[in-house]
Computed example of a mutant assay.
Amino acid sequence: MELENFFDLLQALEKKNDRLIHLLVGNGFSMAYDSTIFSYNALHSFIESIDDPDLQKILSVVETKNFELIMQQLDNLASLVTAFDGTAELKQQIEHASKKLKSSLLNAVNSLHPEHVFKVSDEAVESCAKFLNHFLGKGGYVFSTNYDLLLYWVLMRSSTISHNDGFGREALNYEKGMTSDEIDWSDLYWGKHKDNQNIFYVHGALPFFDAGSQVVKEEYSHSAYLLENISSRMDGGEYPIFVTAGNGEQKLAHIRHNQYLTFCYDKLSTITGTLVTFGFMFGKYDHHIIDAINKAAKQGMNAHPKLLSVYIGVYSDGDKKHIESIQHLFKVKVRIFDAKSVNIWGK
Protein backbone atom coordinates (compact mmCIF):
# COMPACT_ATOMS: atom_id res chain seq x y z
CA MET A 1 0.00 0.00 0.00
CA GLU A 2 1.16 3.52 -0.76
CA LEU A 3 0.61 6.34 1.72
CA GLU A 4 -1.86 8.86 0.37
CA ASN A 5 -2.30 12.51 1.23
CA PHE A 6 -5.49 13.04 3.24
CA PHE A 7 -6.78 15.90 1.13
CA ASP A 8 -6.14 14.06 -2.13
CA LEU A 9 -8.24 11.11 -1.01
CA LEU A 10 -10.89 13.42 0.46
CA GLN A 11 -11.18 15.27 -2.83
CA ALA A 12 -11.64 11.97 -4.65
CA LEU A 13 -14.29 10.83 -2.16
CA GLU A 14 -16.21 14.10 -2.32
CA LYS A 15 -16.61 13.67 -6.09
CA LYS A 16 -18.80 10.66 -5.32
CA ASN A 17 -21.89 12.75 -4.62
CA ASP A 18 -24.02 9.81 -3.50
CA ARG A 19 -21.59 8.66 -0.82
CA LEU A 20 -21.61 9.68 2.84
CA ILE A 21 -18.23 10.10 4.54
CA HIS A 22 -17.93 9.46 8.28
CA LEU A 23 -15.10 9.96 10.77
CA LEU A 24 -13.79 7.82 13.63
CA VAL A 25 -11.22 9.40 15.95
CA GLY A 26 -9.09 7.71 18.59
CA ASN A 27 -6.41 8.78 21.03
CA GLY A 28 -4.21 10.09 18.22
CA PHE A 29 -6.75 12.90 17.73
CA SER A 30 -6.02 14.13 21.26
CA MET A 31 -2.30 13.40 21.11
CA ALA A 32 -2.06 15.55 17.98
CA TYR A 33 -3.28 18.41 20.20
CA ASP A 34 -0.82 17.70 23.04
CA SER A 35 1.06 14.41 23.36
CA THR A 36 2.43 15.40 26.80
CA ILE A 37 -1.12 15.29 28.22
CA PHE A 38 -2.94 12.59 26.30
CA SER A 39 -0.34 9.85 25.88
CA TYR A 40 -0.13 6.60 27.85
CA ASN A 41 3.25 7.81 29.15
CA ALA A 42 1.63 10.88 30.73
CA LEU A 43 -1.17 8.79 32.25
CA HIS A 44 1.30 6.20 33.52
CA SER A 45 3.49 8.86 35.15
CA PHE A 46 0.46 10.37 36.87
CA ILE A 47 -0.72 7.04 38.29
CA GLU A 48 2.84 6.08 39.21
CA SER A 49 3.03 9.20 41.40
CA ILE A 50 -0.05 8.17 43.43
CA ASP A 51 0.92 6.98 46.92
CA ASP A 52 -1.00 3.71 46.89
CA PRO A 53 0.64 0.35 47.76
CA ASP A 54 -1.57 -1.71 45.43
CA LEU A 55 -0.98 0.53 42.42
CA GLN A 56 2.76 0.71 43.10
CA LYS A 57 2.89 -3.07 43.36
CA ILE A 58 1.11 -3.49 40.00
CA LEU A 59 3.26 -0.95 38.16
CA SER A 60 6.48 -2.39 39.59
CA VAL A 61 5.72 -5.85 38.18
CA VAL A 62 4.21 -5.20 34.74
CA GLU A 63 6.44 -4.10 31.88
CA THR A 64 3.95 -2.08 29.88
CA LYS A 65 2.28 1.32 29.98
CA ASN A 66 -0.76 0.03 28.12
CA PHE A 67 -3.51 0.15 30.74
CA GLU A 68 -5.84 -2.05 28.71
CA LEU A 69 -3.20 -4.80 28.81
CA ILE A 70 -2.56 -4.29 32.55
CA MET A 71 -6.26 -4.56 33.38
CA GLN A 72 -6.63 -7.58 31.11
CA GLN A 73 -3.77 -9.25 33.00
CA LEU A 74 -5.48 -8.51 36.32
CA ASP A 75 -8.74 -10.01 35.04
CA ASN A 76 -6.86 -13.09 33.86
CA LEU A 77 -5.12 -13.38 37.22
CA ALA A 78 -8.47 -13.26 39.05
CA SER A 79 -9.78 -16.03 36.78
CA LEU A 80 -6.69 -18.16 37.46
CA VAL A 81 -7.11 -17.73 41.21
CA THR A 82 -10.64 -19.07 40.88
CA ALA A 83 -9.60 -21.92 38.58
CA PHE A 84 -6.91 -23.09 41.03
CA ASP A 85 -9.13 -22.73 44.10
CA GLY A 86 -7.28 -19.72 45.43
CA THR A 87 -8.63 -17.90 48.42
CA ALA A 88 -11.60 -15.60 48.07
CA GLU A 89 -9.55 -12.98 49.89
CA LEU A 90 -6.83 -13.04 47.21
CA LYS A 91 -9.36 -12.81 44.37
CA GLN A 92 -11.08 -9.90 46.13
CA GLN A 93 -7.73 -8.16 46.53
CA ILE A 94 -6.99 -8.52 42.81
CA GLU A 95 -10.46 -7.27 41.81
CA HIS A 96 -10.13 -4.34 44.21
CA ALA A 97 -6.76 -3.44 42.67
CA SER A 98 -8.30 -3.58 39.18
CA LYS A 99 -11.12 -1.23 40.20
CA LYS A 100 -8.61 1.10 41.82
CA LEU A 101 -6.53 1.20 38.64
CA LYS A 102 -9.62 2.02 36.55
CA SER A 103 -10.67 4.87 38.85
CA SER A 104 -7.07 6.15 38.93
CA LEU A 105 -6.95 6.15 35.14
CA LEU A 106 -10.13 8.21 35.03
CA ASN A 107 -8.75 10.60 37.64
CA ALA A 108 -5.56 10.91 35.58
CA VAL A 109 -7.48 11.85 32.43
CA ASN A 110 -9.44 14.36 34.47
CA SER A 111 -6.44 15.91 36.24
CA LEU A 112 -4.12 16.13 33.23
CA HIS A 113 -6.79 17.86 31.17
CA PRO A 114 -6.48 21.52 30.10
CA GLU A 115 -8.26 23.50 32.80
CA HIS A 116 -11.17 24.70 30.68
CA VAL A 117 -12.45 25.16 27.17
CA PHE A 118 -10.82 28.56 26.67
CA LYS A 119 -7.36 27.04 27.12
CA VAL A 120 -7.82 25.70 23.58
CA SER A 121 -6.90 28.57 21.28
CA ASP A 122 -9.28 30.10 18.75
CA GLU A 123 -6.89 29.02 16.00
CA ALA A 124 -6.92 25.39 17.15
CA VAL A 125 -10.72 25.37 17.43
CA GLU A 126 -11.12 26.89 13.97
CA SER A 127 -8.68 24.42 12.41
CA CYS A 128 -10.35 21.41 14.04
CA ALA A 129 -13.83 22.68 13.11
CA LYS A 130 -12.75 22.94 9.49
CA PHE A 131 -11.57 19.33 9.62
CA LEU A 132 -14.79 18.08 11.24
CA ASN A 133 -16.94 19.93 8.73
CA HIS A 134 -15.57 17.74 5.93
CA PHE A 135 -17.81 15.09 7.51
CA LEU A 136 -20.56 16.77 9.54
CA GLY A 137 -21.10 19.46 6.92
CA LYS A 138 -22.05 16.87 4.31
CA GLY A 139 -24.36 14.64 6.35
CA GLY A 140 -21.74 12.31 7.80
CA TYR A 141 -21.28 11.19 11.39
CA VAL A 142 -18.37 11.60 13.81
CA PHE A 143 -17.53 8.74 16.18
CA SER A 144 -15.03 9.05 19.02
CA THR A 145 -13.49 6.44 21.31
CA ASN A 146 -11.86 9.14 23.46
CA TYR A 147 -12.91 10.02 27.01
CA ASP A 148 -11.54 13.56 27.08
CA LEU A 149 -13.27 16.88 26.38
CA LEU A 150 -11.40 18.09 23.30
CA LEU A 151 -14.03 17.15 20.73
CA TYR A 152 -16.81 18.39 23.02
CA TRP A 153 -15.02 21.71 23.53
CA VAL A 154 -14.50 22.26 19.80
CA LEU A 155 -18.18 21.59 19.15
CA MET A 156 -19.13 24.08 21.88
CA ARG A 157 -16.77 26.80 20.72
CA SER A 158 -17.33 26.65 16.97
CA SER A 159 -20.28 28.42 15.41
CA THR A 160 -19.66 26.75 12.04
CA ILE A 161 -20.40 23.12 13.00
CA SER A 162 -23.93 21.74 12.88
CA HIS A 163 -23.82 19.02 15.53
CA ASN A 164 -26.17 17.02 17.71
CA ASP A 165 -25.06 14.65 20.48
CA GLY A 166 -28.60 13.51 21.27
CA PHE A 167 -28.92 15.34 24.59
CA GLY A 168 -31.67 17.81 25.40
CA ARG A 169 -33.84 19.30 28.15
CA GLU A 170 -37.46 18.95 29.16
CA ALA A 171 -39.61 21.76 30.52
CA LEU A 172 -40.55 20.82 34.10
CA ASN A 173 -43.31 23.36 34.71
CA TYR A 174 -44.46 24.50 31.27
CA GLU A 175 -47.83 26.16 30.92
CA LYS A 176 -49.21 27.97 27.92
CA GLY A 177 -48.15 31.61 27.82
CA MET A 178 -44.98 31.14 29.86
CA THR A 179 -41.81 32.96 28.80
CA SER A 180 -38.53 31.05 28.61
CA ASP A 181 -37.33 32.77 31.79
CA GLU A 182 -40.30 31.38 33.71
CA ILE A 183 -39.72 27.78 32.68
CA ASP A 184 -37.73 25.41 34.88
CA TRP A 185 -35.64 23.13 32.69
CA SER A 186 -34.38 19.63 33.44
CA ASP A 187 -30.78 18.54 33.28
CA LEU A 188 -29.42 17.54 29.89
CA TYR A 189 -30.64 14.00 29.29
CA TRP A 190 -29.78 11.79 26.34
CA GLY A 191 -32.51 10.63 23.98
CA LYS A 192 -34.57 13.72 23.23
CA HIS A 193 -32.72 14.40 19.96
CA LYS A 194 -31.24 10.98 19.18
CA ASP A 195 -33.09 10.72 15.85
CA ASN A 196 -30.92 13.57 14.50
CA GLN A 197 -27.75 12.67 16.39
CA ASN A 198 -24.49 12.93 14.44
CA ILE A 199 -21.88 12.85 17.26
CA PHE A 200 -21.28 9.50 18.96
CA TYR A 201 -18.93 8.77 21.87
CA VAL A 202 -18.64 5.00 21.45
CA HIS A 203 -16.68 4.46 24.69
CA GLY A 204 -18.33 7.22 26.70
CA ALA A 205 -16.75 10.51 27.78
CA LEU A 206 -16.01 12.57 30.88
CA PRO A 207 -19.24 14.64 30.84
CA PHE A 208 -21.63 11.64 30.59
CA PHE A 209 -22.97 10.04 33.77
CA ASP A 210 -25.29 7.08 34.19
CA ALA A 211 -28.29 8.28 36.23
CA GLY A 212 -29.98 4.89 36.37
CA SER A 213 -32.80 4.98 33.87
CA GLN A 214 -31.24 7.96 32.05
CA VAL A 215 -27.90 9.28 30.88
CA VAL A 216 -27.16 12.84 31.96
CA LYS A 217 -24.57 15.23 30.52
CA GLU A 218 -22.70 17.47 32.95
CA GLU A 219 -22.41 21.09 31.87
CA TYR A 220 -21.02 24.46 32.77
CA SER A 221 -22.64 26.38 35.58
CA HIS A 222 -22.44 30.07 36.39
CA SER A 223 -20.06 29.30 39.25
CA ALA A 224 -17.79 26.60 37.84
CA TYR A 225 -16.18 25.30 34.67
CA LEU A 226 -17.28 21.97 33.25
CA LEU A 227 -14.21 20.10 34.52
CA GLU A 228 -14.83 21.40 38.05
CA ASN A 229 -18.41 20.09 37.94
CA ILE A 230 -17.21 16.72 36.65
CA SER A 231 -14.62 16.55 39.44
CA SER A 232 -17.29 17.43 42.01
CA ARG A 233 -19.43 14.51 40.82
CA MET A 234 -16.44 12.18 40.97
CA ASP A 235 -15.54 13.36 44.48
CA GLY A 236 -19.11 12.41 45.44
CA GLY A 237 -18.59 8.85 44.23
CA GLU A 238 -20.09 9.18 40.73
CA TYR A 239 -18.05 8.13 37.72
CA PRO A 240 -18.51 8.96 34.05
CA ILE A 241 -19.57 6.40 31.47
CA PHE A 242 -16.13 5.15 30.61
CA VAL A 243 -15.19 1.98 28.68
CA THR A 244 -11.52 1.17 28.98
CA ALA A 245 -10.55 -2.24 30.33
CA GLY A 246 -10.63 -5.65 28.78
CA ASN A 247 -10.48 -7.20 25.35
CA GLY A 248 -12.93 -6.46 22.55
CA GLU A 249 -15.55 -8.87 23.89
CA GLN A 250 -15.40 -7.37 27.37
CA LYS A 251 -15.63 -3.85 25.98
CA LEU A 252 -18.65 -4.81 23.94
CA ALA A 253 -20.27 -6.35 27.02
CA HIS A 254 -19.74 -3.06 28.84
CA ILE A 255 -21.24 -1.17 25.90
CA ARG A 256 -24.30 -3.44 25.81
CA HIS A 257 -25.06 -2.67 29.46
CA ASN A 258 -25.61 1.02 28.74
CA GLN A 259 -28.38 2.39 26.51
CA TYR A 260 -26.34 5.35 25.25
CA LEU A 261 -23.25 3.31 24.40
CA THR A 262 -25.37 0.64 22.74
CA PHE A 263 -27.04 3.25 20.54
CA CYS A 264 -23.66 4.68 19.48
CA TYR A 265 -22.19 1.26 18.72
CA ASP A 266 -25.26 0.19 16.74
CA LYS A 267 -25.09 3.41 14.74
CA LEU A 268 -21.46 2.67 13.85
CA SER A 269 -22.63 -0.80 12.76
CA THR A 270 -25.10 0.67 10.26
CA ILE A 271 -23.19 3.47 8.54
CA THR A 272 -22.98 3.57 4.76
CA GLY A 273 -20.45 4.96 2.31
CA THR A 274 -16.91 5.49 3.63
CA LEU A 275 -15.36 5.64 7.10
CA VAL A 276 -12.21 7.73 7.63
CA THR A 277 -10.21 7.05 10.80
CA PHE A 278 -7.73 9.34 12.50
CA GLY A 279 -5.62 8.39 15.50
CA PHE A 280 -7.27 5.00 15.84
CA MET A 281 -4.97 2.07 15.15
CA PHE A 282 -7.25 -0.97 15.55
CA GLY A 283 -5.17 -2.52 18.28
CA LYS A 284 -5.34 -5.91 19.94
CA TYR A 285 -8.36 -4.93 22.05
CA ASP A 286 -10.33 -3.14 19.35
CA HIS A 287 -11.88 -6.08 17.53
CA HIS A 288 -15.35 -4.94 18.57
CA ILE A 289 -14.81 -1.84 16.38
CA ILE A 290 -13.73 -3.99 13.44
CA ASP A 291 -16.83 -6.13 14.03
CA ALA A 292 -19.03 -3.02 13.85
CA ILE A 293 -17.38 -1.99 10.58
CA ASN A 294 -17.92 -5.46 9.13
CA LYS A 295 -21.58 -5.42 10.16
CA ALA A 296 -21.97 -2.14 8.30
CA ALA A 297 -20.31 -3.72 5.27
CA LYS A 298 -22.69 -6.70 5.24
CA GLN A 299 -25.94 -4.72 5.28
CA GLY A 300 -27.69 -4.54 1.93
CA MET A 301 -25.72 -7.57 0.71
CA ASN A 302 -24.44 -6.71 -2.78
CA ALA A 303 -26.48 -3.56 -3.17
CA HIS A 304 -26.36 -0.10 -1.66
CA PRO A 305 -26.56 1.25 0.91
CA LYS A 306 -23.73 -0.28 2.92
CA LEU A 307 -20.25 0.61 4.07
CA LEU A 308 -17.90 0.32 1.10
CA SER A 309 -14.49 1.37 2.37
CA VAL A 310 -12.40 2.46 5.34
CA TYR A 311 -9.53 4.93 5.04
CA ILE A 312 -7.06 4.61 7.94
CA GLY A 313 -4.61 7.35 8.92
CA VAL A 314 -1.12 6.21 10.01
CA TYR A 315 1.83 8.13 11.43
CA SER A 316 4.75 5.76 10.93
CA ASP A 317 6.07 2.80 8.97
CA GLY A 318 5.25 0.66 12.00
CA ASP A 319 1.64 1.83 11.92
CA LYS A 320 1.48 1.14 8.20
CA LYS A 321 2.82 -2.40 8.64
CA HIS A 322 0.33 -3.04 11.45
CA ILE A 323 -2.66 -2.04 9.30
CA GLU A 324 -1.34 -4.12 6.41
CA SER A 325 -1.05 -7.12 8.77
CA ILE A 326 -4.70 -6.88 9.86
CA GLN A 327 -6.19 -5.76 6.55
CA HIS A 328 -7.64 -9.23 6.01
CA LEU A 329 -9.89 -8.78 9.06
CA PHE A 330 -11.94 -6.12 7.30
CA LYS A 331 -14.82 -6.97 4.97
CA VAL A 332 -14.45 -3.64 3.16
CA LYS A 333 -11.83 -2.04 0.96
CA VAL A 334 -8.98 -0.68 3.14
CA ARG A 335 -6.78 2.23 2.14
CA ILE A 336 -4.25 4.08 4.26
CA PHE A 337 -3.18 7.70 4.29
CA ASP A 338 -0.53 9.84 5.92
CA ALA A 339 -2.06 11.15 9.17
CA LYS A 340 0.62 13.85 9.32
CA SER A 341 -0.90 15.43 6.20
CA VAL A 342 -4.05 16.42 8.11
CA ASN A 343 -2.81 18.95 10.72
CA ILE A 344 -6.10 18.98 12.61
CA TRP A 345 -5.10 21.54 15.22
CA GLY A 346 -3.39 24.02 12.89
CA LYS A 347 0.07 23.62 14.41
Score class of each variant (00 low, 15 high):
F208P: 15
A171G: 09
H222S: 05
D165H: 09
E126I: 14
K138S: 04
R233T: 06
R157L: 05
S159Q: 05
S231M: 11
P114F: 00
Y201S: 05
E182P: 13
P207T: 03
K194D: 06
F135P: 07
W190P: 04
S231N: 11
E182R: 11
S180G: 01
D195Y: 02
V216K: 04
I230P: 05
W185T: 05
G140H: 00
H163M: 04
D148N: 05
V125S: 02
K176P: 09
L155S: 08
P207V: 02
Q214G: 11
L136N: 14
G204Q: 05
L172D: 10
G177T: 06
L151W: 12
Y225G: 08
V117Y: 06
D187K: 10
F143G: 03
L226V: 08
H134S: 12
A129C: 03
A171S: 14
Y141Q: 02
E182A: 09
S213G: 11
V202Q: 06
S162C: 08
Y152L: 13
E115F: 00
L226G: 00
G137Q: 15
E219P: 08
K176V: 15
F209T: 15
S121R: 14
L150W: 10
K217N: 11
G140D: 04
P114E: 09
D122V: 14
V125K: 11
H113P: 04
H163C: 12
V215L: 14
I199K: 02
F208I: 09
F208S: 12
H222E: 01
D148G: 14
L150R: 13
F131H: 10
A211C: 12
I161A: 03
H193S: 07
V216Q: 03
Y189L: 06
I161V: 02
H203W: 00
L151D: 00
L150P: 01
G236M: 13
L149V: 01
E170C: 01
L136T: 12
F118V: 10
Y147R: 04
Y147K: 01
H134R: 04
K119D: 09
D165T: 12
G236S: 07
L226K: 03
V202K: 15
H193Y: 15
S162V: 02
N146S: 08
A124Q: 13
N196P: 00
M156C: 10
K176S: 15
M178E: 09
D235L: 13
S221V: 03
F143C: 14
S144N: 03
H222P: 00
S121N: 02
G166F: 13
G168Q: 03
G204I: 07
G137Y: 04
L151K: 07
D210I: 04
K119A: 13
D195V: 12
G140T: 15
R233N: 07
F135E: 12
L150Y: 01
F143Q: 08
F135I: 08
N196Y: 03
D148C: 03
L188I: 07
I183P: 02
I230V: 01
S144L: 14
G236N: 09
Y220N: 14
